[in-house]
Amino acid sequence: MRRGDIGRLNELLREPMRVFVRESRAHIALLVNASGQVLAQHGFVGRYHVMNVAALAAAANASARLLADLTGAGRWHYLHHAGRSRQLFLAPFATPSEELILVAIFDESSTLGLVELFFQRFASEIRRMPEFAEVLPPVSASAFEGELEAGLDRIFAPQQSGEGA
């Protein structure tokens, strides 16, 4: 749990997220850190929905990473679930300050290759941002939960109509 500057980050991430969604044709996208704190979102309706997906995505990433360690598989590039009509793409990427995870849901108007291609470009762009360039100071564990929920409050504040439909 890292970020107290969620509101500002959310603003800065708005455009890269928008570009990712437009180019990859994903219809839902979520950017979280390894603890599940939401940094940016696109396409979600309510904060509780985002919360669930964020927590589960962080858990899935942690499990996948441990599986890779236990089986000697090295690092995964991404997790991909192909459903009947929708697919899920989940990819971790490192920035100097912390590990982030991008989750995207897409349907037949896109492909895994396309989503992965624009994910790579998105990740490169985020890595270059000064906000993700510095190693973060250690976090107070007691502030942990407050920051998890406060982040969502900032993203879903009433005055920000944002991209959530």
Partner: peptide, 10 residues
């Protein structure tokens, strides 16, 4: 499976 502040994540 824990966060970087050693809190259980999963």
């Amino acid at each position: 499976l824990a966060t970087d502040t050693d809190r259980t994540l999963f």
